[in-house]
């Protein structure tokens, strides 16, 4: 397989349901914590180093072949908000569907049988990367990038933000994406020998609280 498969997997148009989720941006916009490109940038930076790092670690570990059931439990323990656990499993199920159609693999089929209602998205992402012939570094990059690209495209819709400003936010985070992917892969390699406790567990209190605030709204644009 080819490295270019990463472009297919990381493409925002990959049909795996991400467009309906804001990664916490909708709650932060409503609370006034994101009001423009600068605060979006800080939001994304914080999400990248917390939820993004955690997701990247799980994805890299799955890509390395660590037991997905253990990883899914580790993801549960790292996701206290039930609204976020539901969203992660929904997205995991949608990603699995898209990945199985794109890169048929026995491992993906087995994951579908183990988790008919969906495993945590980063775990599925790691196995999808594996099925696409990609490695843990690719999986970590993909997860880290999604942790910031999702809220950014959602904020463009929520605030009618200038799309060029939004894209610049993502580009400026590139060096930090590199560092997060490196940390995630290093931890994942450690987890091969030491178990899933070695994986990052970065958390963001306002993402957790905001997810529950958002889930309680009667009317919202995004699913999470």
């Amino acid at each position: 397989m080819s490295r270019a498969a990463l472009l297919v997997l990381a493409d925002g148009r990959f049909p795996a349901g991400g467009h309906a989720h804001s990664g916490g941006a909708e709650a932060a916009v409503k609370a006034g914590r994101i009001s423009g490109a600068a605060s979006l940038g800080e939001f994304c930076r914080g999400r990248l180093h917390t939820a993004g790092l955690t997701a990247a670690g799980l994805s890299a570990a799955a890509a390395l072949g660590i037991d997905p059931v253990a990883l899914d439990r580790a993801a549960d323990a790292r996701t206290p908000s039930p609204a976020l656990r539901v969203a992660a499993r929904k997205l995991g199920r949608q990603l699995l569907r898209a990945a199985r159609a794109t890169w048929p693999s026995a491992e993906l089929d087995a994951l579908g049988r183990e988790f008919p209602k969906g495993a945590h998205q980063p775990v599925v992402l790691g196995l999808a990367a594996r099925a696409a012939g990609l490695g843990p570094v690719d999986a970590a990059y993909c997860a880290a990038y999604e942790s910031v690209s999702g809220p950014t495209s959602a904020t463009v819709r929520l605030l009618s933000l200038d799309p060029f400003d939004a894209t610049r936010v993502l580009a400026r985070l590139a060096p930090e994406l590199d560092r997060v992917a490196d940390r995630a892969v290093e931890a994942a390699r450690k987890a091969v020998g030491e178990g899933v406790d070695a994986l990052p567990a970065g958390s963001a209190p306002l993402l957790e609280i905001g997810a529950e605030v958002h889930a309680a709204w009667p009317v919202r644009l995004f699913a999470s």
Binding site: A28, I34, F43, C44, G46, L48, H49, T50, L53
Partner: peptide, 9 residues
């Protein structure tokens, strides 16, 4: 790591 005092954290 960056963003700890920002709107997500």
């Amino acid at each position: 790591p960056g963003g700890w005092d920002g709107p997500a954290v």
